[in-house]
Write a protein that binds this DNA or RNA. Structure first.
Lengths: 337, 337
DNA sequence: TTGTATGCGTTATCAG
DNA sequence: CTGATAACGCATACAA
């Protein structure tokens, strides 16, 4: 009775029929009589039969598992992508194994190995900051396992990728500053290793050059967390020509920046405007004044990634190198005019 | 070569030995000669052999997977518990399947079914707000699968549980108010369905009665997100006897409360002190003034849960009904005297 | 319409 | 020290 989980064998035994008949009945195979099907279904319910996905996986060489590797799930953005991945995967009968690289290259490699060993049917990756060698990703593909990059993508490996309009988002932010009379726009930029940082930087730079504003190196500083955002903003405020606008690579950095501005007595947005990136609902709600930001469709990006991944499961290499770009939006709140 | 993943069969074939020898060599079985072992290991490396966990799972009736069901991973607390679970599980050769119930009872049931079908070796659950019927949890145990409750526990089902000092945390908060001369302490409480809400409420109530302060029903209102925290605080401020301190069931609610206080021109902490619960690093950093809060050891709770779960894998029922309580701490910042 | 046999990759038992 | 074989639970080609 409660001897672990019931199997098709148990159903077969109870009904005195063969396991193959049970298997087929459960799958609604046309060959099986309605009568048998009904009996099987009832017995299955009686025994609370749940198909053993492990056995199914072994048999059909499909685990119905997909792997997701993200840097850190604590970040709002990544947790929303997980929701998107999970929802779509579940809707297609897949489950998700989540791994965090903690921004560590070594850990990312371990994660890949673990997922491969678990025979996941596909892997979605958002690359860690530390990663500069990409052979572990190529390795996935060599095994014939579909791979999709999400947000933190990787140009060195040809794989379907899902990003948002990083460039356009940054462009919008900078344009907004310009159209409100700002000329001395600083950028708190992300690490060199990340493409998204470069894209955001480029969007910013292109707006400057479009408006014939010379790029000023002191205005472009590395900062991607609260503390560095705070610290680097203090330094910006020490410049002879202080900026009149700050575009930050993400919201928490923008929050650090706001803290510095507030402490130094600058009025936001009157003296200095600020725009973040990510539109984190907690951060944008809590800063004073409320942070304007570029909305990133995390849930949709996750969903789309899962969709592209599942589309490629079972197909032959080479995998397409399609890049899907999802829309970002400028959300104006109180740190902008 | 790149024909999917290598198996022990491939190694056996290459070395012209039997699969059983390979299997044993890989497991460092004492019967196998050092010479053979070395050859096998080398060939395994050459072929980049990774054991097929699915096959292993089927064979040994152990999937080396554990399931984690949390309400919503976007909350900082739950994402830190995931890290704890993941780290400990990985260290023991287990992987984690994460499911979000989205605070929905139906979805929680679906999650349980899915995990059972995946033949996870154990399940960690943080119960959804909506859940009042617990048969799906009992069901897990009936199947002989160990179950551990974490944070959002469930007294109706006897299972090992990991919580933090909800009562004591609330007690500390209220005591702190009292010891700084506050007498009109309000509580923004969580939903009735959650034990942690009750515990936090009780800690608060016991401090009142200890100090012979009569409980005042208008001071105890339901609120567990930013908007309700904001709204209910406005109502508290309309009372004839306004509170001089507010203890909130979580940090985001406290943040909503602070927003209301600020809008109405109350000084925090001089006029009204505020303490939250959870010690969310983003929220406590961003509110103005910075929010005092009760620190909850999320990572350790996750780790402990995984530890208790793995301890029970393979053991016979009945599972112990041990409850582990982890320490909370009062973190004083700027919303308290 | 149903049953038998086989194999997915691995490990354990039993022989040798 | 090593090999052949069965079994885990399921799905399918082939028989009947």
């Amino acid at each position: 009775m409660s001897k672990g989980q019931a199997t098709i064998k148990d159903i077969a035994k109870a009904l005195r029929i063969s396991v193959s008949t049970v298997s087929r009945a459960l799958h609604d195979h046309p060959d099986i009589s309605e009568k048998t099907k009904k009996a099987v279904r009832e017995e299955a319910r009686r025994l609370d039969y749940q198909p053993n996905l492990i056995a199914q996986g072994l048999r059909q060489q499909k685990s119905h598992l997909i792997g997701l590797i993200v840097p850190e799930i604590v970040h709002h953005f990544f947790s929303t992508t997980l929701s998107g991945v999970e929802d779509f995967a579940n809707s297609q009968g897949y489950h998700v194994m989540v791994c965090q690289s903690n921004e560590s290259y070594e850990r990312e490699k371990t994660n890949v190995k673990a997922l491969l060993s678990s025979r996941v049917d596909g892997i979605i990756v958002s690359v860690s900051k530390e990663t500069t060698d990409f052979s572990h990703f190529k390795h996935i593909q060599k095994r014939g396992i579909p791979l999709v990059f999400m947000d933190r993508i990787c140009n060195e490996v040809k794989a379907p990728s899902v990003v948002c309009q990083d460039y356009e988002g940054a462009y919008m932010a900078a344009e907004h500053f310009i159209s409100h009379g700002r000329r001395r726009i600083a950028h708190l930029r992300g690490p060199k290793s990340l493409l998204i940082s470069k894209q955001r930087l480029n969007g910013y730079l292109d707006v400057l050059s479009k408006h014939r504003i010379p790029k000023k190196d002191e205005y472009i500083v590395f900062a991607s967390d609260f503390e560095s955002g705070y610290r680097e903003t203090l330094r910006l405020l020490d410049l002879h020509e202080k900026p009149d606008a700050i575009f930050a690579v993400n919201d928490i950095t923008a929050a650090g920046s706001l803290r510095a501005l507030q402490e130094k007595g600058f009025r936001v947005p009157e003296d200095i405007s600020v725009i973040g990136f990510g539109d984190d609902p907690v951060i944008t709600k809590l800063t004073v004044p409320k942070l304007s930001s570029i909305y990133q469709p995390g849930y949709e990006m996750g969903k789309m990634s899962a969709q592209m991944l599942l589309k490629n499961i079972g197909v032959q290499e080479p995998f397409p190198h399609e890049i899907r770009v999802l829309k970002t939006e400028l959300k104006l709140r109180e740190t902008t005019l």
